[in-house]
């Protein structure tokens, strides 16, 4: 039962992380923006508030030249999910070995 619970929890946690960082990451960018900055996301309203540059958190907050949220989207949906997937694989390899034993 211990391995069963480990499988369930590892799968649940890894799936939630992957769904968040790769799947609907951008939803949270929008929702958090609305919550904390009370913005109505229409093009005109956004330009009025943020100016033409439209940085999400703070103007000119960049990583390697990219706006932070875009950089995070690109990296998390690639390297981030690969690492989470590899961790899940190691956990499942361990469970499989114990199942065989």
């Amino acid at each position: 039962m211990k391995d069963y619970k480990l499988e369930i929890w590892a799968t649940l946690i890894c799936f939630i992380i992957v769904a968040f960082i790769g799947g609907f990451f951008s939803s949270f960018v929008v929702i958090l923006n609305e919550t904390f900055f009370n913005q109505v996301p229409t093009p005109e309203g956004l330009v009025d508030f943020y100016g033409e540059t439209m940085f999400v958190i703070k103007e000119h907050l960049t990583v390697m030249g990219f706006p932070l949220h875009y950089f995070l989207l690109v990296m998390l949906s690639w390297i981030g999910v690969t690492v989470v997937g590899a961790i899940w694989c190691f956990i499942m390899d361990g469970i499989e070995e114990r199942q065989r034993a």
Binding site: S27, V29, V30, Q39, P41, L46, T53, M54, F66
Partner: peptide, 30 residues
Amino acid sequence: PLGYGDLVPEMIEFVPHYFWAMLEHPITYI
């Protein structure tokens, strides 16, 4: 994959909404 960051300021001048996530309702991403 990460080699075009230094063109971002000029791109924002040309296409202000290029990196803009907020033009879509969250349900779009869901």
